[in-house]
Each structure stands twice: as C-alpha cells, then as structure tokens.
C-alpha cells in the first residue's frame, strides 16, 4: 500500500530529515512509526500525502508512483488518504459539523448525505452533542477527535495519524486508539506516528523506529 525506496529528503541544504529510508506497509497493516522528536516522523507522513517531495528515491502509494506526481493529480491521491494532523488544522470559525463535512464536500456529496454521515462519524468518536460547537470551545482531546472524525469520515483507504494521542489522558488515548483500530478492521491501512513507544499494543502489526531520519528498526509484530 505504501512503499518507500531509498527515500532521502532535506529541507534547505542542511542535514537530511530523512536519510535513505526504505519501507513497505502492506494493505490492511496497522503500523506504528516511533522516534524521538525531530526524528522525521511527520516528514515521512507528509511524503505519503504529497505535501513534500523526496529529494531522492521513490514513493509509491496504492500502486501509484507519486514521486513526481503532477500537481493536478494530488487531489485524487489525497481523497484516498485521511490525515490527522499533528496540529489538527481545524478551522476555528466553523462548526464541528462544517469542519468534518469539508472532506465530503470536496467529494461533491449532497447536503443530506453529508449531514447523515457526519453525524454518524461524530457519534463514533463520541462528539455528536458538540456538532454545533466551534473548535475554540472544545477541549484539546475533543479537538483531537474532531480532527480524527474529519480524517475518517469518507472511509479512506489509508489513515495517517500524526501524534494522535499527543497530550491526552489514558482514557482518551484508549478511545482514540479504539477508533483507529475499528477503522483498520473495516479495511483501512493505518499509520500512526508517535514519540510514545508505550502506545504499542497487541493490535500493532508493524513497528518502525526512526532516528535522525534513518530507519533503525522495522519489524513485523503481528
């Protein structure tokens, strides 16, 4: 599903953020990418949804080589990928409903279908009662779950979650992981990037450890 072949990436000209990374995440995998802050986890995810292009090497996603993908093809790629951003990227002026609906609007869904689907996914993350709130009036954990709902609402083939348990308490962490696990069971390939290795549980099928932009461990733990 996701393949990187000898991928290196440098911002500007200093030391590379990713150094000769090769990995293969299979369809239906649940992968955990860990590493200390600055190891290159977010950078790696950005390569997958084509927010960055590798300096060298090849990136394949869902059978498509996206290394030099023309800009006009990027939307099609991103519609297959749900991303939970490290900084959420929620629109503060819009309601929770509007924020989550954006993913479906982009696909051209009708209003009624959107409302039904958004309500459904919000119920799944336990926030249906906040549907009319704006993100500014939500707690950090609630914002996290709205970001999650936006990424999951169109049942994407791939889910990339960047630090999805960031600063959540144990109960919220469990909830978030539960949601991702369910998505994985329904068929999505899930990749979590986190600095927190303790997150690893029996549901994890692949563990990838990054250090200074290089892979130091890549094990199939399923």
């Amino acid at each position: 599903m996701i393949e990187l072949h000898n991928v290196s990436l440098s911002y500007q000209h200093d030391t590379p953020a990713l150094n000769n990374v090769t990995l293969n995440i299979a369809k239906g995998d649940f992968a955990l990418i860990t590493g200390v802050s600055g190891a290159g986890k977010s950078t790696l995810l950005k390569l997958i949804y084509a927010a960055l292009r590798p300096t060298s090497g090849q990136v394949m996603v869902d059978g498509l080589n996206i290394t030099g993908i023309p800009v006009s093809q990027i939307p099609r790629l991103r519609r297959k990928i749900g991303v939970v951003f490290q900084d959420f990227k929620l629109l503060p002026g819009r309601t929770v409903l509007d924020n989550v609906a954006l993913t479906l609007e982009v696909l051209g869904w009708g209003k009624n279908d959107i409302n039904r689907k958004v309500y459904h996914i919000l119920k799944q993350v336990g926030l249906e009662h906040k549907i009319k709130s704006t993100p500014l009036r939500l707690s950090g954990g609630e914002q996290q779950r709205v970001a999650m709902a936006r990424a999951l609402v169109n049942d994407p083939r791939i889910i990339l979650a960047d630090e999805p348990t960031g600063n959540l308490d144990e109960a919220s962490k469990e909830k978030v992981l539960e949601i991702l696990k369910e998505a994985n069971i329904r068929g999505s390939t899930v990749v979590i990037a986190t600095h927190d290795r303790r997150l690893m549980g029996d549901w994890c099928k692949r563990l990838i450890v990054l250090d200074k932009g290089a892979i130091v461990e890549n094990t199939d733990v399923s």
Partner: peptide
C-alpha cells in the same frame, strides 16, 4: 490562508 491550505489537504482541486 489556513482554510485554503486545509482544503487542498483534504483533496480539493484547485478549481474547487
């Protein structure tokens, strides 16, 4: 500009 960026990230075309 945040909204513009996000639209692109969730798969909107430039036209859209």
């Amino acid at each position: 500009k945040d909204e513009l960026e996000l639209m692109g990230l969730v798969g909107a075309t430039r036209f859209f």
